[in-house]
């Protein structure tokens, strides 16, 4: 049956197995590297297309980094013809089960939230996970057309205008705070740096636009 367990045998066999396995993995990795990157880009583009009003450029390629309150945010700009129609802001917060990542789209003219897309979350299935629910009357719906200048971006329990998900207040608060920091970014972009929003630096990371 098995080979004798001499020291030499053991080192050779184990070494050989490790070598072959890592070589195999390196091959698989190099094959899947591009599809993985593509899947990520496709996801971002999907998110962008859902949260922005009409546009005729490629917002996914027109991204910039905006710094607000010491945090850096990625912003995608939507244009139609010459005018900017909206901004999609990638924003995150600490939810109940871990990081919560959102794409929040704003109407450039009015400041209304156009739509919110959940990029990733690790909330409890059946409770906090309802933030990504798409069925009628879902949690996200109330953010459509929400104007943070007119209503308060906080859950009811904290005196705001957002209905929290039953039994998932922490998740709802995290979601709302991510939306609210995205709104700070929007205000920054509009040059309206009121309370707390300081020191803006905007660096363009997207390639090839003629701005």
């Amino acid at each position: 049956m098995a080979k004798e367990s001499t020291f030499k045998n053991m080192v050779i066999v184990l070494g050989l197995i490790c070598l072959i396995c890592s070589a195999l993995l390196a091959v698989v990795y190099s094959v899947t590297e591009d599809p993985i990157a593509d899947a990520l880009i496709a996801k971002t583009n999907d998110a962008i297309s859902q949260v922005l009003p009409e546009y005729d450029n490629m917002p996914g390629e027109e991204s910039s980094l905006v710094e607000v309150n010491g945090q850096k945010y990625v912003v995608y700009t939507a244009r139609k013809g010459e005018s900017i129609t909206g901004y999609a802001v990638e924003s995150k917060a600490a939810g109940f089960g871990g990081e919560l990542k959102l794409m929040v789209g704003f109407d450039a003219a009015t400041g209304d939230i156009y739509n919110v897309y959940v990029i990733s979350h690790s909330e409890t299935p059946g409770l906090g996970a309802k933030i990504s629910d798409n069925s009628p009357g879902n949690f996200k719906e109330q953010f459509k057309g929400f104007n943070p200048a007119e209503k308060v971006l906080k859950v009811h329990q904290e005196g705001g205008d957002v209905d929290a998900i039953t039994a998932s207040t922490i998740t709802s608060k995290a979601f709302t705070s991510a939306v609210s920091s995205a709104y700070d970014v929007y205000r920054q972009l509009k040059g309206d740096s009121a309370d707390g929003v300081t020191s803006a630096t905007q660096t363009n990371i997207g390639g090839g636009n003629d701005e």
């Binding site: 049956m1 098995a2 080979k3 004798e4 367990s5 001499t6 045998n9 053991m10 066999v13 184990l14 197995i17």
Partner: peptide, 10 residues
């Protein structure tokens, strides 16, 4: 490959 693997590092 089981035949080639020494018992102790199985």
């Amino acid at each position: 490959v089981a035949r080639f693997i020494p018992n102790k590092v199985r």
